[in-house]
Design a binder for these strands. Structure first.
Length: 507
RNA sequence: GGCGCUAUCGUCUAGGGGUUAGGACGGAAGAUUCUCAAUCUUCAAACCCGGGUUCGAUUCCCGGUAGCGCUACCA
């Protein structure tokens, strides 16, 4: 196949959120899959704000969408706002109406939850309206009576509506099971179905990649495309992202874990988050897990998408199902999908020291610690293998940032198989030795091991009191590197402090 | 209720008429080590149920069940 690529071969895809809430993880994944498809195939990525629901749209939501996408560093090539394209939508409605494929429904709009759905059976149309004569219809419309425009679904001939989904395969549904859905509301505004199809046709969208919740809507869309004289695009529906309880993700039920900015604020790397999302409902089929953005673009194909809903395995909030804000010092890691955390750690470890350092710096500064880029660079290699989220740096490396260590249990200073006296001896000896040791890894190593030998104790017994005195806790990065970064002055001051404050009166 | 979609370890998934059903996360155990990590090794862990088709089904077909989605003048 040595065809030259023409513009007709290049796919045009779109992400079309309705700005009625924050950008949530499911939407983000839909964007990503579209983006991946466009980039993989040299196509065009379009962002279209489907804002036909004037009541529910908010500017804050638009901002949240931009904010999330900006963080993910995902770009698009064209941008549209559906509310500015009303003429086009009405035009299509007009076309369909003139072809006799839609009719005016003068029945007043239903308010709230209608009795149409539910156990009463399937609502298909408002009796009388479908059969209204054109003359009668025109007359009432001319008289200013409000109406909704409904699609006249060809229900009589036992017709089947068909399309082929790139993910779900051949789809068919009896027209008899499709209700006469609205195209135009009685205020003249287009419905989602109409606006979406009109824009998809006008923007020459070649592939519609969207959530599976639209799979059954697609039959209506096929009807609209055909009624307006357009060939329907290729559809590809994505399995839904669901919560551990199997229900779809909602902020109300599941809290901030469904919002993209939560991941940003917790210290996820955008590339890791994208990686994680891609693995939900898609597989490269070669057991690869950790992938860079480029590798994802390379590997992506519609064939790799699977059909079953995927669980985002975050920790369920409360048994009652309501979200309770976690206490300030609870571990945020506990709420995220463990695999997302692991992937994030993998991506963190793959970063160069420079890169990681520059991402850590704003996090540390935002926590109001005063740290220079140079110092951050020194600290970075010491934390790289110890953090899963960027924010972890605050708890893993806190002792590098603070002037004064927070109080700790003096018992921590006591080494394995040792006592307070041993801790005191170690610290005193350390003071003397360190005062005249160059603060470089190897020199420190030698000096401290020699000191341990002199004291007749194990190296571990020597290191622990020092580590605790200097870091304020037992678990910390390797000692010599730590001391080197901390410097002689701080080290000696903290050891003196431990001796003075913590071990006094301990005997 | 009607219609549609789906069903492999706890979770994400690979696979496919005959396999020890593979990988990953998480879990357990061990190695390494100045602690913690990281790393390495090992272990436990799955084909929803029932009928077909077939020499043989987890895989194909049908039914059931369960979950999800749609059933608005929301998107």
């Amino acid at each position: 196949m040595n065809q030259t690529t023409t513009s007709a071969d290049r796919p045009r895809v779109r992400f079309a959120p309705s700005p009625t809430g924050f950008l949530h993880v499911g939407s983000a994944r839909t964007f990503i899959f579209n983006w991946l498809y466009a980039r993989h195939n040299g196509g065009t990525m379009i962002l279209r704000l489907d804002d036909t629901d004037v009541e529910r749209n908010t500017e804050a939501s638009v901002q949240s969408i931009f904010e999330g996408l900006k963080w993910l560093n995902l770009s698009w090539d064209e941008q549209y706002k559906q509310s500015e394209r009303g003429a086009l939508h009405r035009q299509m409605a007009q076309t369909i109406f003139e072809r006799g494929l839609a009719y005016r429904d003068f029945t007043p709009a239903h308010t709230g939850d209608s009795e149409k759905s539910g156990a009463q059976g399937t609502w298909l149309s408002n009796p009388g309206m479908r059969e209204l004569s054109r003359e009668e219809s025109d007359r009432r419309a001319a008289a200013g009576e409000p109406f909704a425009l409904r699609f006249r679904v060809p229900r009589e001939r036992g017709e089947m509506i068909r399309f082929n989904d790139a993910v779900y395969g051949a789809q068919a549904k009896a027209a008899a099971d499709i209700e006469d859905f609205a195209l135009l509301r009685s205020d003249g505004m287009p419905t989602y179905h109409l606006a979406s199809c009109a824009d998809d046709a006008d923007l020459r969208i070649s592939h519609i990649i969207r959530g599976q919740d639209h799979l059954t809507n697609t039959f209506k869309h096929v009807l609209i495309f055909e009624a307006a004289g357009f060939e329907p695009p290729q559809f590809a529906h994505l399995p839904l992202l669901v919560a551990p309880d199997g229900t779809k993700l909602s902020k109300r039920r599941h809290g901030p874990v469904v919002s993209v900015t939560t991941y940003r604020d917790a210290g996820f790397l955008p590339e890791a988050f994208i990686n994680f999302l891609c693995l939900l409902g898609w597989s490269p089929k070669n057991d690869r897990e950790k992938m860079s953005r480029e590798e994802l673009v390379d590997a992506f194909s519609l064939e790799g998408i699977n059909r079953a809903n995927a669980v985002v395995n975050f920790k369920e909030s409360t048994p009652q199902g309501g979200w309770v804000p976690s206490p300030v010092n609870s571990n945020p890691e506990d709420t995220f999908d463990p695999k997302a955390l692991w992937l994030n750690a993998e991506h963190i470890r793959a970063l160069s020291v420079d890169d990681l350092g520059s991402r850590l710096l704003p996090v540390v500064r935002e926590a109001r610690f005063d740290v220079t880029p140079e110092k951050m660079l020194q600290i970075t290699p010491l934390v790289r293998e110890r953090i899963r989220l960027l924010r972890d740096v605050l708890v893993v490396a806190d002792f590098f940032f603070v002037d004064e260590l927070a109080p700790y249990d003096p018992a921590e200073l006591i080494p394995q198989k040792g006592d307070t006296a041993m801790a005191a001896r170690v610290l005193q000896r350390a003071q003397e030795v360190l005062a005249k040791t160059e603060f470089k890894h190897d020199a420190l190593d030698q000096a401290l091991r020699a000191a341990a030998q002199e004291l007749g104790i194990k190296a571990g017994q020597m290191f622990q009191p020092i580590r605790v005195a200097v870091c304020g806790r037992k678990n910390a990065p390797p000692l010599f590197e730590t001391l080197e970064v901390l410097g002689k002055e701080t080290t000696l001051a903290r050891i003196a402090q431990a001796l003075r404050v913590r071990l006094v009166g301990q005997k």
